[in-house]
């Protein structure tokens, strides 16, 4: 068992290693800066999720102890990474690597438990759940509400709506139908259309391209290339290595909340794929 001071120095040593490994970017050119970001949370499966549970816990020792035992999940563990403006960054990693959590933190949805995140520019998110928070409302209402929540004015949303609808190109009439009637592909199309039309400086895309058909994938790739040419920053989480290699000029590999490798997309995806085949023992031996 290590003492506290040992643990800290170990953490810092790891941090230094990562810092040396990651590119140092001039502050003026920084789009997203992550400084030793940790995100912890308690899984919500414990007995005390209900008032009843809490009240019973007051005099029931077993329940109280059960609460104490609840594990703290460390979704992101000390990630330090600078993402420069105009970069197309691909993040790869196995399920549960903390990629989506990190994306949410960059979007300001989750706060880090430790560390610091600096974001320069307007962020538009297309996260795994996508758009359409209320399935009873039409696609149009969801787009409008999403835009308003993002801070656009009613006029701006109205102006963008036609463009969004045209890009999403849903089957006739679906835009006015409740979103619960949409197929997952239609969800994906509309979500992507909204995200890219919000004039983002930084676009965060989380596994969203997977639902579209081939034609729409091509269209979204074109749109992303267009955004890249306008010096926007894009962060993509994807399990499609082809997309990462084709689109990105920078890549990172996360595993169990830690940043394992950072660099050229081809190299990163290659070592990630090698790891997937070899299994976990290899990554332990891997130099950070």
């Amino acid at each position: 068992m290590l003492s506290d001071s040992d643990a800290i120095s170990l953490e810092q040593a790891k941090l230094e290693g990562l810092r040396r490994g990651s590119r140092v970017i001039d502050a003026d050119d920084l789009a997203v800066g992550l400084e030793d970001v940790w995100i912890r949370y308690k899984p919500m499966v414990d007995a005390n999720r209900t008032i009843k549970g809490s009240v019973l816990g007051l005099w029931n020792r077993k329940r109280r102890d059960a609460k104490k035992k609840t594990r703290v999940i460390e979704a992101v563990r000390g990630v330090t990474m600078d993402i420069g403006g105009g970069t197309v960054m691909g993040i790869v990693g196995a399920n549960g690597a903390g990629k989506s959590t990190l994306m949410r933190a960059m979007a300001g949805i989750l706060a880090p438990s430790q560390g610091r995140i600096v974001v320069n520019g307007r962020v538009s998110t297309l996260l795994a759940l996508g758009i359409g928070f209320n399935g009873n409302l039409s696609g149009r209402a969801n787009v409008v509400l999403g835009g308003l929540a993002a801070g656009l004015t009613r006029e701006e949303v109205e102006n963008k709506f036609e463009e969004i609808a045209a890009f999403a190109d849903l089957p006739e009439g679906f835009i006015e139908m409740p979103m619960r009637t949409y197929s997952s592909g239609m969800y994906g199309r509309l979500g992507f259309a909204v995200a890219v039309h919000m004039d983002p400086d930084i676009l965060l895309i989380d596994e969203a391209l997977s639902t579209g058909d081939a034609a729409f994938k091509e269209k979204s790739m074109d749109k992303m290339r267009e955004l890249v040419s306008q010096a926007r920053t894009i962060v993509i989480v994807s399990h499609a290595m082809g997309t990462i290699v084709e689109l990105c000029n920078d890549a990172a590999w996360m595993h169990r909340g830690e940043l394992i490798q950072r660099g050229d997309p081809e190299e990163v995806t290659e070592s990630y794929l090698r790891f997937l085949k070899v299994g976990e023992s290899a990554v332990v031996r891997e130099d950070l």
């Binding site: 880090p112 560390g115 307007r122």
Partner: peptide, 8 residues
């Protein structure tokens, strides 16, 4: 458009 998110 500049945001800083810190631990709390």
């Amino acid at each position: 458009n500049h945001h800083v998110y810190e631990a709390h």
